[in-house]
Nucleic acid binder design. Structure first.
Lengths: 200, 200
DNA sequence: TCGATAACTTGACACGGTGTCAAGTTGACA
DNA sequence: TGTCAACTTGACACCGTGTCAAGTTATCGA
């Protein structure tokens, strides 16, 4: 069941939030802007979401549904080797970031002041950490994890490499294109985590 | 001439800003808090600084002076090889981040909404990029820069690795200690940028 | 000694954004 | 016909920034 069937206006709010946030103005999108875009009064927003933070979080979940996160993760879960799993995971997540970046940016902008937003974003990101941990663990089981790092350290390092902020820095501040960004992440993940013992 | 001699209250404001920001509450430190800490009225703050953003920027410059940035950069400038220059630069900057992180956090928190803060922080960070560019260039002159990356790309990549946000992620979100953080940055910078052609 | 000037104080206010409250309106359904 | 849910309008409190106006205090020079 698509969420749209159950509650049309809630769905319209989420769509509007999404499209406004797509525009890049993360911290500058106001509740009133969203209301206007959804053709609803500002107050009606609060009938559906208790506050801005929860509206944004709901929007990320909505995007997970629309973009079918599960399908995107399938290749990495289906990988037969640790190296392949890492490669597929980095690919999947790196290419997912641009899709959620608008909402992510807004949520990250709230973190400094809003405790709720902080918890919400941390929670979303801990799911990413789990993906990193799974890839590291697969690598370890193949005996391909670098000696220099413990699994926990390797997970943290990979997680950091795949952070939204690093994506922002390279793509926005440095002006890189997506392909080059992904290529660098692949190279760094491989160089950092994969043991080179068995290579020529 | 130390800035303290010239204008005592301005100096007291900067010291207060600094110490409040040290406490970590980047976005939550208000102008009134700073005024109170400096034993001054909130309005008097505006006699010295036009707005919050400029006060924060002035605080970063103050820290540069107090912590003697120039001296910290000397080892990297004095390096005789590209590899050594890179190592010294990464070391200097990585160990400078924790000192300015409080102010940096506050300034970064303002970026989403405040254009002035955005420009100010971007300007400060472009100085860091220049340090990265210098290290990359030294490496290139030694013929030790990896083939896979252009100098500009290598600079961007190093700059991203050395971003304050990555430091935050590893040190705060992941709970790493400073030494481990620096070690990882050294390893990644070396692995990413330095050509391994002449090794055993 | 007077008076000007700079540094600072007190107290008020506008603005913009979030979240809340109260009192309607509208339409569907029993 | 009445009731309930979804929504509207309009008001308001709160908070933090930045501004304005009028008053105090200390110092310095003529």
């Amino acid at each position: 069941m698509m969420s749209s069937e159950k509650n049309p206006t809630r769905d319209r709010i989420l769509k509007s939030t999404w499209s406004l946030l797509e525009g890049g103005g993360g911290g500058t999108v106001r509740m009133s802007d969203i209301a206007k875009a959804a053709k609803i009064s500002r107050q009606a927003l609060y009938l559906h979401f208790p506050n801005r933070a929860e509206l944004l979080v709901a929007t990320t979940r909505y995007l997970d549904e629309v973009y079918d996160v599960e399908a995107r993760l399938r290749p990495s879960r289906a990988a037969t080797s640790g190296v392949e799993r890492l490669r597929a995971w980095v690919d999947a997540w790196c290419n997912y970031i641009p899709l959620i970046h608008g909402v992510g940016k807004a949520l990250m902008a709230m973190q400094a002041t809003d405790v709720e937003a902080q918890a919400a974003w941390a929670n979303r990101m801990s799911a990413v950490r789990e993906g990193c941990a799974a890839a590291v663990s697969a690598l370890e089981q193949d005996g391909q994890l670098t000696d220099g790092l413990s699994p926990a350290e390797a997970t943290d390092a990979l997680w950091s490499l795949l952070s939204v902020r690093l994506w922002e820095h390279l793509r926005i501040d440095c002006g890189w294109d997506q392909a080059r960004y992904v290529a660098l992440m692949q190279e760094m993940a491989d160089g950092l985590l994969v043991s080179k013992r068995h290579e020529p």
